[in-house]
Amino acid sequence: MTEVALSSGAGAPAHAAPTGHGAGGPAPKRIVVGYGFWIFLLSDVIMFSALFAAYAVLASNTAGGPSARQLFDLRNTALETGCLLASSFSCGMASLAVGQRSMRWTQIALLVTGLLGAGFLSLELREFEGLVARDAGPSRSAFLSAFFTLVGCHGLHVTAGLLWLGTMMAQFLAKGFRQDIRFRFLCFSLFWHALDIIWVAIFSLVYLVGTIL
């Protein structure tokens, strides 16, 4: 009773009193957007963890077909890794350019990001093509099914990221550095960096471990 009276009668005008919990009131929209997208990314990572678990369980079930050691070309993997890492870096440069409101550098950095991402994707498609041509497609063995599901799912994410990246370039060009566009770009850069983190797990645990076992 007295507590209610005390807290409502603090003396501050109603419109200035915080409406959320805690001392600072509701979090600013930028925080809410970033945090929400972070939660989405973590759920995406959990989905990938299920694919990783499936791959780890099935990796030795080659059904008499080729094994990881005979199939993987580490030079190609190293090139893909380099492309994705460099594109992650240039995506970071793009977010700094957005912070500086420099349209030219934003567009240049995003273009470089997209080209490196497309380079990664073409290397991966060429690798898949080579595997299918050597009769090591997804239907060959449980190992290859799990491999194509896991790596292909990452490739699909990169494809979606490239479409998103093109959209962001067009939106910055057409609408400028509007607040809502910058929120979208914050989400995009998080997505792109998270894809690189998943690729770190793929090249270490699928390609590198595959060549020594």
């Binding site: 930028r30 925080i31 914050l186």
Partner: peptide, 14 residues
């Protein structure tokens, strides 16, 4: 709502 700096409480990922 635009600038996080004058709130100074949280930081968003990225």
């Amino acid at each position: 709502f635009d600038a996080g700096s004058d709130v100074g409480q949280d930081s968003a990922p990225g």
